[in-house]
Design a protein around this nucleic acid. Structure first.
Lengths: 152, 152
DNA sequence: CATTGAATGTAGCCTGGGCTACATTGTTGT
DNA sequence: ACAACAATGTAGCCCAGGCTACATTCAATG
């Protein structure tokens, strides 16, 4: 590490600054979409399972308190993804259902890929929950292709 | 759990509440470790490349302003991962270096796996940046095994 | 049909991670 | 040597997403 301070030591395997900044920026963006996607997906699942999604149930399943869940649902409503009337269940708009479908498909695809490369079921489900928000379209396409090649 | 004695539809393919809450909790935890890991990894890379890590450089590469980077570095110092003296570069403690090494190895492994299943290089790098924080040990072990099987 | 417990909603606080604006210190070129 | 500029540091704000505490409404049941 005692590099002569004069020599223009070129970065070895480091990406260029703008590239790297863009990557980290994308990751931050994905983090912020995460909450929205998790809620929408969960609400869709609850509706499919019970015909409606109750705030308390959403909160319990996400492992947060109910005011937190309500606040997030309020955001979904602001964003036009969900609807709800006081003291009633939570429902998804058309846009919400579309997003849920997309998210669910992505989730399944990632779990399948993880399983295909040997990740145990429980770990695959748990890790997919976090990773799914960071998979680009290019990556998803590659996953789909890999799986179809493997299963043929 | 959701097993009402009445005629309520039981949840079909949904995980039990506690399981699901635990998964989401882990994902939230991973999100909060993300920043720490990103900074430590980047600082280690900069030190390897230039002999030191400057705050401005860190900020530029993460795509944030320098006060933000400084605030985060202050947190790293509080957590015993980094050291720095006013107007000097940033360095890692022993713990910081260990974490950096772990993070870097994980990053490489994930990029390799993505490439191995056909993800293009740029997407693999970018997506790994986000996904790496969500890969459990079980998943990493499976990845390593998959790669070594493939390369043999 | 009145009561009561659970679900829902509201208020207000905290923390982390962004930002801008401004102040201070280092470094470098002439 | 020192002026000017870049880098570093500080102050103070914002917003999102947690939480607790308290208020309100629903619904179930005695």
């Amino acid at each position: 590490m005692a590099r002569p301070a004069d020599g223009r030591t070129p970065a070895p395997a480091m990406p260029a600054e703008p590239t790297q900044a863009r990557r980290f920026g994308k990751a931050r963006e994905a983090r912020s979409a995460t909450l929205t996607e998790d809620y929408v997906e969960l609400i869709a699942d609850l509706i499919a399972a019970h015909g409606e999604a109750r705030a308390t149930e959403v909160a319990k399943r996400l492992g947060v308190t109910h005011p937190t869940a309500l606040k997030s649902v309020a955001r979904l409503k602001r964003e036009g993804l969900a609807t709800s009337r006081p003291y009633r269940g939570i429902f998804l708009t058309e846009a919400g259902r579309a997003l849920a479908e997309k998210v669910r498909a992505r989730h399944r695809l990632i779990v399948e890929l993880l399983r295909a490369v040997g990740v145990p079921a429980e770990a695959a489900e748990a890790d997919a929950e976090g990773m799914e928000h960071h998979a680009s379209d290019a990556t998803l396409r590659a996953f789909a292709k890999f799986l179809s090649a493997k299963n043929s």
